[in-house]
Nucleic acid binder design. Structure first.
Lengths: 185, 185, 185, 185
DNA sequence: ATAGCACGCTTTTGAC
DNA sequence: GTCAAAAGCGTGCTAT
């Protein structure tokens, strides 16, 4: 009976090896076409998660990055804004939409903001939190570096102000099986 | 001499175990304060990368997500926009700044766009690529779902239009020490 | 607080890296002296186990190897013989000692046994089991290939005879503190 | 094209998952029959190695165990004896066979040796090495604890006597591809 | 130039 | 469910 088990497992190991080869050939094909296999791996990981698990993961990641000043010009993503908004005003609707869909005509690009202006935006974000405003109140436009700085200021204030961790930063309590198989770690 | 080596390694293993315990105690502390240890792990991984490696990773991740329609309302991040912009117009400056730092007064939140409007924005993004426009031409505001949809449309068109992969999607060639573990080549 | 946790973990990661370097230097030293680092790793793993865990592991490994004909001239080890002996005659003492400490004078090495003789020994081992004999009854000397063949025959008969797995093959149940080499059944 | 790659990989991941389930069912079956899955894993690892890789691995493992006094009553295995014998007398045939196939009649089990006798055997082994004798000269019988002690004494003397590592302890130089995919580590 | 080798990372699997 | 250990994997190096 031992022999039978061992032979079965060895047969299955052969199948596994064959499968691995097929996977590698697909990856090689992707690589030869100029795609990044590593990034594709991250994509697969994200797609394996349930919608809610992914919302939680991406939201928390953005929130933590904001607190640590790692936003680097990319403002808070949708999930993170939802979290912060829910925390501040749970009675309000999730997303009030964009501040203003400005004229779809070609925008005359203004000069990029100076570092001083960016810092001012960061301070303004912190002040907004202190005044009890909402993350959605960020006044800066889409790709404006000041938008990210304002978000960072807001989140840093939220993280350090109260003596406790904001609820938005807490992971949801153990749901069912969400397939969230660690990204980082 | 064998015995000496074995004893040295066992001593070092003891130190390793002690270190592991200290790490776990920090993680437990974080957990008990309501932080997500898993997300913190991802943060650490990101911080371990060099600036350029992180730019490449986050940029490609956003680009691939856009192509697969996984943006879910979060527009392209800074790194991804830089990549696309560089590809389209390498002679131009990276970032022209925000379309317009609209009035910092409390914005009157307009009603969220309808699904039809979002789809229209996606089509507009694809059309913009076809017309040779730039990603930065996205006319929609910061948190507007149509902004993400426009980005997705643009990237999907960029990805499927030419028979080849856009240069912006290609990983940078292996540098010396950039901290990036396997760029995927 | 998040920042504090992240910094702590990064500091500990630095210590971990330093420790890893020290371990590698010891391994390199061992390697340069001609030792096999891989085998040393196995040694460390064995030494990390408790005495009883190691007895169980090595005993079962030998037993399974015997059943699969992988003994290759190395007879059953102590732990495996103990297991088989306990199974057959639990009322008897563990080890009756060696058959005979033959004359310590230089042994006149007889010619190695022929393959036919080895096969005969294997059959004899199976027959011994069928007759209800004990593993300890193996009549062949220390390094005689027939000794291993006899053991293999005995174990193969023990494994395939009854329709059930011999108790000696069962891992001890993961008790907390029972110490009994229990049958678990 | 990205989408195609991602879908292919996800399909293959599904196959992989199915295979993993089948493997687990076999393991569960083995476990429910009383077999140790962990030990079976070690068996599979050993069987994956080429014959020569396994000879080297098992031989070195026994040799190192002997040097560290971890033989615990199990004498040197075939591969280890071959290595030591080849080192001492490369001109001689590998295995001279057993010292003496003593009478296959039921051996009258003598009383087990005392600890003092075992220690004496260990010393005798060391002395044998010092006199330039061969490992095969071990005078004690198969399962006699003194046999293992003699082996340990011999190997310990071999390991600490010369200022250098015995050749028998050195891993074979890079052969072709033996499939030896690390056990230990 | 090429191919084996060795290292570190990630992921998966087994134990508590 | 969590956590440590092990195995697979990919990569860079080195030696031929």
């Amino acid at each position: 009976c031992l022999a039978e088990v061992v032979e079965d497992l060895e047969g299955l190991a052969v199948e596994q090896e064959a499968l691995r080869l097929r996977i590698n050939s697909v990856k090689d094909r992707a690589k030869s076409r100029g795609l990044s296999v590593k990034v594709i791996g991250s994509i697969l990981k994200l797609r394996k998660m349930s919608e809610e698990a992914r919302a939680e993961y991406e939201g928390l990641l953005d929130l933590y990055k904001a607190d640590l000043g790692m936003l680097d010009g990319t403002p808070l993503g949708k999930y993170a804004r939802d979290r912060m908004a829910k925390e501040k005003k749970p009675e309000e609707d999730l997303e009030a939409g964009a501040p203003a869909p400005e004229d779809p005509a070609e925008p005359e690009a203004p000069p990029p903001p100076t570092p001083e202006e960016i810092e001012a935006a960061r301070k303004a974000g912190g002040a907004a939190f202190a005044e009890g405003r909402d993350v959605l109140a960020n006044p800066f436009g889409a790709a404006d570096p000041r938008r990210a700085a304002w978000d960072e200021g807001f989140c840093a204030a939220a993280g350090s102000d109260g003596m406790d961790i904001p609820d938005a930063w807490r992971p949801a309590k153990p749901r069912k099986k969400d397939g969230s198989k660690g990204d980082g770690k």
